[in-house]
């Protein structure tokens, strides 16, 4: 089983690669559109600000390659910033068009919530398919959150009495706001479930 990690040059690629290798998976790291287009199981990691990542996606046809792969039946897992990029619109330093695999916008966490939301938090599952999302703790570092449609919401997390999206899914496209590669056994379990679903 091979996992193809898309390197947008915006961080945490080595940690994500190590997490999949620990599960016994073959991992390839790619940056070129032609490699992305033919992949069957894609992972889009990322940390930091959205605009540089979007710029990188639009350069050299990586965005079109992701669309082509997904249209041809590939699975796609977005992690943290990679999860946010899956949505239609991002409102970070202005309004940006996202990849649009999932309807909805990515907005700053509501005022009154301490940002960044950082640390371990318990996720409650709101959709089926991932047993690991039932009441287990995952590691978060973010200041923005996606607002998916109810039917695409997979899990929520509550911080400072405000609940927001922890995970979303539409068909073969899955996104998680947390870092499974830094979430200990729960994170490993989530990645195993993604591998099982996508095999």
């Amino acid at each position: 089983m091979t996992v193809t990690v898309v390197d947008l040059g915006v961080g945490n690629v080595p940690n994500v690669v190590r997490a999949f290798r620990r599960l016994g998976t073959t991992v390839e790291v790619v940056a070129q559109a032609e490699d992305v287009a033919v992949a069957r199981r894609l992972v889009l990691p990322g940390v930091g600000a959205a605009p540089p990542a979007l710029e990188r996606l639009r350069k050299d046809g990586v965005e079109e390659a992701l669309r082509e792969a997904v249209a041809n039946g590939a699975w796609l897992l977005g992690i943290c910033l990679g999860h946010q990029l899956l949505f239609e619109e991002l409102t970070e330093f202005g309004l940006h068009r996202g990849l649009g695999f999932l309807p909805g916008v990515v907005a700053p966490l509501p005022s009154g919530v301490r940002v960044p939301h950082m640390g371990w938090a318990k996720v409650e599952a709101t959709g089926a398919g991932f047993g690991s999302l039932h009441g287990r703790w995952f590691y978060f570092v973010h200041s923005y959150a996606a607002q998916p449609a109810a039917e695409h919401l997979l899990g929520v997390v509550t911080h400072d009495r405000v609940s927001f999206c922890a995970a979303a899914r539409r068909g073969r496209v899955v996104g998680v706001q947390f870092h499974p590669e830094k979430s200990g056994e729960a994170g490993a379990q989530f990645l195993r479930e993604f591998l099982e679903l996508s095999s």
Binding site: P14, Y139, K182, G184
Partner: peptide, 8 residues
Amino acid sequence: VAEVLDIP
């Protein structure tokens, strides 16, 4: 440590 550790 980063090779084996999956917590921050």
